[in-house]
Lab assay of single mutants.
Amino acid sequence: RNRTTFTSYQLEELEKVFQKTHYPDVYAREQLAMRTDLTEARVQVWFQNRRAKWRK
């Protein structure tokens, strides 16, 4: 699989949710996936990576 390149809009939306919660539930991830036109799996992985970056 190729690396996903996120648009500025997608990143904005993802970051907005990340500010509210670092662990969005499956419903929140589904909503976000629909809004950003990404798969729920991509959203889930983005949050995993974002949490790792945040911990550093």
Rank of each mutant, 00 (worst) to 15 (best):
Q31T: 08
T21Q: 05
A41G: 09
S8E: 15
V43Q: 02
V45N: 13
E12S: 10
M34N: 08
Q44W: 04
W46S: 01
Q19T: 13
R35H: 15
N2Y: 10
A41E: 14
A33S: 08
A41D: 11
E15M: 02
F6Q: 06
R35L: 06
K53G: 13
Q10N: 03
K16C: 09
L11Q: 14
K53F: 09
Y9K: 15
K16F: 11
V17I: 11
V17A: 14
T36H: 06
Q48D: 15
E15T: 03
R55C: 11
H22T: 04
Q48P: 00
F47V: 01
D37Q: 09
Q44D: 14
T4R: 01
L38W: 03
W54R: 10
A52D: 08
A33I: 11
V45A: 13
Q31W: 06
Y9R: 12
R1M: 05
K53P: 06
Q31S: 11
W46R: 01
L38I: 15
T39N: 13
N49K: 09
R42S: 13
Q10Y: 00
F47E: 00
R35D: 06
M34D: 06
E30T: 15
Q10D: 03
Q48N: 07
Q31C: 12
T7H: 08
L11R: 07
R1S: 15
N2W: 02
T4L: 11
K56Q: 14
R35S: 13
K53W: 08
R50K: 11
R55G: 13
Q19N: 11
R55A: 13
N49S: 12
T7D: 05
T5L: 08
R29G: 01
Q10M: 03
Q44T: 12
V45K: 09
F6W: 10
A28R: 06
T5M: 15
V26Y: 10
E15R: 01
F47K: 02
Q31V: 08
M34H: 07
V43I: 14
V43F: 06
K53I: 08
K16P: 02
F18M: 02
H22R: 07
A28F: 05
Y27D: 14
A28S: 11
H22C: 08
K53T: 12
R42W: 09
D25L: 03
A28H: 05
Q19D: 15
Q44R: 11
